[in-house]
Design a protein around this nucleic acid. Sequence first.
DNA 1: CTGTTAGCGCATTCAG
DNA 2: CTGAATGCGCTAACAG
Lengths: 349, 349
Amino acid sequence: MRNVGSPQAGPAGRPTLEMVAAVAGVSRGTASRALNGGANVSPAALAAVRRAADELGYRPNMAARSLALGRSDSVGLVVSETDERLFADPFFAAVVRGVHSELTAAGMQLVLTFSQCDEERAQVVRFAVGRHLDGVLLISVHGDDPLPYSLVRAGIPVVMAGRGTEQERRAGVWWVEADNAGGARTAVQYLLAIGRRRIATVAGPADMTVGRDRVEGWRQALSSAGLEPEPALLRHGDFSELSGRIAAEALLEEVPDVDAIFVASDLMAIGAMQALRVRGRRVPDDVAVVGFDNAPAAARHLPPLTTVDQSVEQIGRCMARMLVHRIDGRPVTEQHVVLPTRLVVRETA
Amino acid sequence: MRNVGSPQAGPAGRPTLEMVAAVAGVSRGTASRALNGGANVSPAALAAVRRAADELGYRPNMAARSLALGRSDSVGLVVSETDERLFADPFFAAVVRGVHSELTAAGMQLVLTFSQCDEERAQVVRFAVGRHLDGVLLISVHGDDPLPYSLVRAGIPVVMAGRGTEQERRAGVWWVEADNAGGARTAVQYLLAIGRRRIATVAGPADMTVGRDRVEGWRQALSSAGLEPEPALLRHGDFSELSGRIAAEALLEEVPDVDAIFVASDLMAIGAMQALRVRGRRVPDDVAVVGFDNAPAAARHLPPLTTVDQSVEQIGRCMARMLVHRIDGRPVTEQHVVLPTRLVVRETA
DNA sequence: CTGTTAGCGCATTCAG
DNA sequence: CTGAATGCGCTAACAG
């Protein structure tokens, strides 16, 4: 009663290479050659095969090709984050856009996966090593996530967004990151240049390198200017708008005389500005604000948000390109790239 | 013996079922049975196989299984929309969440794909019929999109979000939609009940059933109340925030005495309220506003937005469930389901 | 309960 | 240039 794995699964039994060859009057071998590049095939045979394939509406069975070739032409993008945040944060949107466009150009498919719990993490590994995935792109990796390491150990090429640990580097994990510390430094230096002195920061999660690096930049800029990066001036959020608001509120409570905030993401910056407005602080007159990301919302905000631009789409594009090269065994100059950032001055600072 | 025949497969050769069987001292057949449910296998053999698989770190090759079984255990979610909008609109986030959770429960993988241009559309079909996909979920389908039809014609099970055409229904396309007309009607009736008389609407795209159905609900409610659904009261947007603002601006220009707007999405409603604020109209005192979706942003907005709730996550979950049932050949009671909506009254109306 | 056999559809040797 | 043969790793049907 149940439809078991019968050969004729589809309603009409899909055309196979064998049929195409038969119609074209050649052997399976030449048909195959004709369909893939057509090297070593006579023009006549090539035309015949192409016509036959077209007539029959032939589509190669990827599973079979996968089995024969040992590759699936698809790569996974795994997001170690709740899907809620994935969609809320424009950062991901841009990365996905970059990845997708680069992958499409290379004729590969994007398989999106979330891995929030350990169960899902295990499933990702299972799926990837089952040869369903030729490689994996990792996004939003937190410090203690074993995924990069276990994937590489299983022989899967991995490129992640953001710097990894030394262990991961040695294991062969590749990555691309923005110059987070540099960007943060530039932002804070700018704040100093326009005369601010009590410069706080709302940072990202402490268990992510992006989070820590931007704090480091803030710290450096302050120290270089002979200022003390007091602990009270440092707050952590999780990159969400709400967390930015909460952090800023706490900050204003404890450090009322703050005159500038460097916020580690535009979304959090927008949240922080809500807190400022509620407290009656004018931006930038009383408190200057600089964000990070140059998200679309930053430009749209009223007033337009000064921010550190990291070309996120580039990051995605770069990750995808590196992975594809690695899969194809093509030479790769750098296995760990750092993309530049630049300050975009608008009205909030 | 060119291949590395050692049981301990290094980075090159992954352990195969054959090796597991060898180590366990049984045949490939029993090893296979043991690993899939273990029916008709002696306890001793079962244990031996399991231990061997565990020791070798065996992972079944999905391509091979796919080829043998005729299914890939993965389904595609194709979004006929720019990735920009995909991520901007919380609607998609919720659908993806629902789909993903249901799929994970069924042990299937989600393959995300965009199909913005014809080239990508063709690629989706190619990919799906290549047996890489057991079925396809369609989101944000516009009126003239040939994708659902061509997929079904190619023998791929398809479930889409939103009602399809009569042709698609006959072809065997399934779908799940919210009660859009009903929800719109309820919203407008509520507006009438609180005394509004010049009730405009900012609708969705005219080439989408969701867009048209919500207009229809608005129309019905007005007519039933003996009011005329004047063309000047109807504006179209594309569900984006910006389009909502533009539509509302044009509306206020032409119909200055409007006292309520039913907006076909929360995002557009938020845009519309920006326009109202700029024009100095108070909400809800001068103009009442009702949105659609009950997006997170609706509740967060100041003032909180009255809206029509459609449990979007449910839609995704339902779509996925229907597709999985169909793939498994399990009985399905309904091929076209309509999910209820309900009005959530907050402060804007 | 088990080992054996026969494909699944394709790319790729090897002879001609 | 081409056809025939081989194998990718797995499942299912068929005998024991």
